[in-house]
């Protein structure tokens, strides 16, 4: 039997298909402000390759309520389930998605027992990092050298204010790598506080597109003074969880 999980995110839409519990297909495409259409495209291209629709489908993520088929489950439960497949021993999850950040606490059975999400603000979300990094017009070299740079503190966590703070620093001649390092460090600090408002993990699972920023991961480990683990393809765990729940 084939079970599919479709995660209709604000930035990317993801599909995972399992056959007898084994992953047989996984695909990501940009949502382009229409995650429902992106989801339909993903399902269609799966059907083209494999001939038929998966028997079971769970849809999750921001666009889930508008998707024409499948059982709807929130990304919180799906994320918990997906992470449990990789890290059954770890209880705390930090998910840094495009539109929101969340901390989830699960129990040893993989069931979500507590969660928090950022409120009414882009601060500390993937979008925040994207906006600022895009504004910096970075080269790959600059991003690499940020790893060795001394982070300059960035105080504003409002996306708009932080952007103007960054512009002021660059105008004053602060080297770009220091600004980038500062951006990741201040985001890590905020995320660490966010995690600790729920609890004090011995080891934190980090998911979502934000987990791809290795410098952010390093600063997060420093701030939490704990180990951070990242599942393979950290942006796919909610879709995987959805497939497992299907």
């Amino acid at each position: 039997m084939k079970q599919a999980g479709l995660d209709l995110g604000s930035v990317n839409t993801k599909l995972v298909v399992l056959e007898n519990g084994e992953r047989v297909y996984s695909q990501v495409i940009p949502s382009r402000f229409d995650s429902v259409q992106a989801g339909i495209t993903l399902i269609n291209s799966y059907v083209e390759k494999h001939g038929e629709k998966p028997e079971k489908l769970v849809v999750t993520g921001y666009g889930r309520v508008n998707f024409p088929e499948g059982r709807v489950i929130t990304e919180i439960s799906c994320q918990g389930r997906g992470c449990h497949a990789y890290f059954p021993e770890q209880m705390y999850i930090l998910d840094l998605g495009g539109q929101d950040a969340k901390v989830i606490k699960k129990n040893p059975a993989g069931k979500v027992v507590q969660f928090i999400m950022n409120d009414k603000c882009a601060a500390g979300t993937g979008r925040f990092l994207d906006v600022i990094l895009k504004g910096l017009d970075l080269t790959a070299d600059e991003l690499d050298s940020a790893a060795a740079a001394k982070p300059i503190p960035i105080n504003s966590m409002c996306t708009v204010f932080a952007e103007s703070e960054v512009i002021t620093m660059l105008a004053k001649g602060t080297p770009k790598p220091e600004v980038i390092a500062g951006l990741f460090k201040s985001t890590a600090k905020r995320l660490a506080n966010f995690v600790e408002s729920v609890g004090h993990p011995e080891c934190l699972i980090f998911t979502g597109g934000g987990a791809h920023y290795s410098l952010l991961v390093r600063f997060l480990e420093q701030e939490l003074k704990e180990k951070v683990v990242i599942p393979p393809e950290p942006e796919m765990t909610a879709a995987l969880g959805a497939a497992l729940l299907a």
Binding site: E75, I76, K120
Partner: peptide, 23 residues
């Protein structure tokens, strides 16, 4: 939950509420 009287965050609030009910 934290909110105000505007309608724009209904989707975000509903996600949190649904997740609580799933829990």
């Amino acid at each position: 939950l934290e909110s105000d009287f505007s309608a724009e965050d209904q989707g975000q609030l509903l996600t949190r509420i649904e997740a609580l009910l799933e829990m």
